[in-house]
Design a protein around this nucleic acid. Structure first.
Lengths: 293, 293
DNA sequence: CTGCACTATGAATCGCTAA
DNA sequence: GTTAGCGATTCATAGTGCA
C-alpha cells in the first residue's frame, strides 16, 4: 500500500480550490481562534470571524466525499467579560447558507487546563469538536474506538488518584462506584461524546497544537486505512503525522513558511507498506517535536 | 433565620409577572426541551422554541437582582439525524434582544449516561449549563465550591521549585500577607467549568430531573444563606428541596397540578433556623423521591 | 526497570496604566 | 472616550534525572 502525504504552502482559501471534488474522507482541523490582537497568527476579529470562515467551509464541503465528515475544533474566547458568539453564528450560517448538517458536538475535556484565578469565572477546561456532514449517511467505524473495558478499568483504577476518588465521592452521593462491577462484565464498550485528554506540555513549536490523541481518535472513527485526511490549518502538522502513522493519505495546508518547511522536512511524502491486515499499523512512538523560534 | 419556600401553580410566563423586580439572586432551571414532554407544555416545536422562551427570559431578567445569575440547563435534541440549533439561537437572541450577558458555558459531564447504540452517533453524556448575567459585576462565592487538590500538592508543598520561587518572588512586592495565606490553603483548588456528576438513576417521577448535586453546586457558588433561588420550571422540585436544605429562600413554579401538589406536600413552606455561623447547614440526606405516574 | 522527586509550561483572563 | 500592553494569578500533566 502506498500512503501519500501532501504538505502545501499557502492560504487554504486559495489552495483548497486546487483540490478535486469529493476526494477527502475526513477534514480535521483547528482554525485560529478569533483574536483581537493583531500580531498573533491569523488575528481575525470576532466580529469578522464568520465571514472569514464561510468561504473556506464552502470549499471544504466541495472537496469532502458525500460520506465524509468535517470535525472542527474550536472554542470561543472571552471578550470584555463575555463569551463571544461567533462559534454559534458560524454553525448556524454553515447550516443555513451552505447546507452542512450539524450532526454532533463532542466535548474535549482538557484535564490540565491553563491555571489562573479571576473574580468572575473559573478556568476553561473544555473545547468544542463540532461534527458536520454533507449527508445523513456517512462512514463511521465505531468499533475502531471501542474502549477495552477490562484493561481500561484496570488502568483507570490504578491511575485514579485520591483526589479523583474523593472528588467523585463528595460530588456524587451515590451511584458511581457501583458501576465498576458492571464494566468488568463486558470486554469492550462504545465511548461517549466526551473525550478526556490532557494537553501536551512540550509543544514549543506551535502555539495551537492539540495532543495526538485527538486527531487519532477521529481518524480511527471516521476513516479506514488508505482513506484521505485533510487539515487546512496544518500548523505543526499533528494531524498529518498521526494520519501517516495510521496509514491514511493526508493533505496539510499551512500559510506560514516556517511551519510548512518544518513539517515537510520531517514527513516522508510517500510511505510504502506491505499489504497486511486491517488496522495493524504499528504504534510507533510519537515524534519528537522540533524547536522552532 | 426564617427560610421561605413558595411553590406556585401555573404557567411561569404568567406567574412570573406577579414577582417583584430585582428580587431573586439565582435562577436555576431546566426547561422542557423542544418537542419533549408533550403532555406538559404542549411539546414546543424546535422552530418555535426561541419565540416561546423569550417572553419568559424577559421576566426572569426583570425579577433577577442586578448582581444575580441565571443558570440555564439545556441540551439540544437530535431531530432527523441532526442537532437542533434552537439553543444557540436562544443565546444569541437573549443577548441581542434582551441585553443578557452570556458570561460562561459550563459542561455537565454525565458520567453514567443512558446506555444505547446508534449507527451514526455515540451516547450523549453531557449537557450545557449556560450562565447569563445582567451586569458584569455579579455575586460569586468561589471559595464555597473549592475541591481538594491533587496528590502532587503534598510533595510540592515540601519543596517549592525554583520556578515557583522566582515566579513568586516577583509578586512578593505587591501583596504582603496574601501569598502566605494562599500557600497555607493549598489543600484546595478552584474547580473548572466542567462538572463531573453522575445522573441519579432512581428518578422515575419526573422525566427531566437532574441530580441534587447540580443545583447544589450553583447555589453554593452564586448565593449565600438567606438569598433567594427561583426555578420557573420546578418539576419534581429538586432545586427547591436543595435550596431549603441549604437555607436559601426559594420559589418554584410548576404548571402541572400533580407535581405542584407533590412538592407542596413534601416541602415545609417556612423553616426556622437558629442564628448560627455562615454556611453551616446540615448535610441532610437526599430526600426519598415520591413515585408519580 | 520501577518509582519518586523535581521542572517546565499550556489556544487564559482580568485590571490597571499609558498613549 | 478607546485601545493596546503588561503584570499578577494559578494547577495538572508529561518529561527528565536519579536512586
Amino acid at each position: 500500500m502506498e500512503i501519500k502525504t501532501d504538505i502545501l504552502l499557502g492560504d487554504c482559501k486559495e489552495i483548497l480550490k486546487t483540490l478535486p471534488d469529493d476526494s477527502v474522507d475526513l477534514v480535521f482541523t483547528s482554525p485560529p481562534y478569533a483574536d483581537q490582537r493583531k500580531k498573533t497568527y491569523g488575528g481575525i476579529h470576532p466580529d469578522r470571524y464568520v465571514e472569514w470562515f464561510l468561504p473556506i467551509s464552502a470549499e471544504l464541503k466541495r472537496v469532502l466525499k458525500p460520506t465524509g465528515t468535517f470535525i472542527l475544533n474550536i472554542k470561543e474566547k472571552v471578550v470584555n467579560g463575555e463569551r463571544s458568539t461567533y462559534v454559534m453564528e458560524l454553525i448556524i450560517e454553515m447550516r443555513r447558507q451552505q447546507g452542512w448538517l450539524w450532526t454532533e458536538e463532542f466535548i474535549w475535556h482538557k484535564k490540565n487546563c491553563y491555571p489562573g484565578k479571576w473574580p468572575n469565572r473559573f478556568r476553561d477546561s473544555w473545547e468544542r469538536l463540532i461534527q458536520f456532514n454533507k449527508n445523513r449517511q456517512f462512514s463511521m467505524y465505531q468499533e475502531a474506538v471501542m474502549v477495552p473495558m477490562g484493561d481500561w478499568s484496570k488502568t483507570r483504577l490504578k491511575n485514579l488518584s485520591e483526589t479523583d476518588k474523593t472528588r467523585d465521592e463528595s460530588k456524587v452521593g451515590s451511584g458511581f462506584g457501583k458501576n465498576i462491577s458492571n464494566w468488568l462484565q463486558r470486554d469492550m464498550a462504545y465511548p461517549t461524546n466526551v473525550l478526556h485528554l490532557a494537553t501536551e506540555c512540550n509543544n514549543k513549536n506551535h502555539s495551537a497544537a492539540f495532543p495526538e490523541g485527538l486527531p487519532e481518535w477521529f481518524i480511527k472513527l471516521f476513516t479506514k486505512e488508505g482513506d484521505t485526511v485533510l487539515d487546512p490549518f496544518m500548523g505543526s502538522g499533528t494531524t498529518n503525522f498521526v494520519a501517516q502513522r495510521m496509514k491514511r493519505n493526508s493533505i496539510g495546508i499551512e500559510i506560514m513558511p516556517e511551519y510548512h518547511e518544518m513539517v515537510e522536512n520531517e514527513l516522508k511524502p510517500v510511505e510504502l507498506y506491505l499489504l497486511d491486515k486491517k488496522d495493524s499499523y504499528a504504534p510507533t512512538e510519537p515524534r519528537r517535536r522540533i524547536e522552532l523560534r
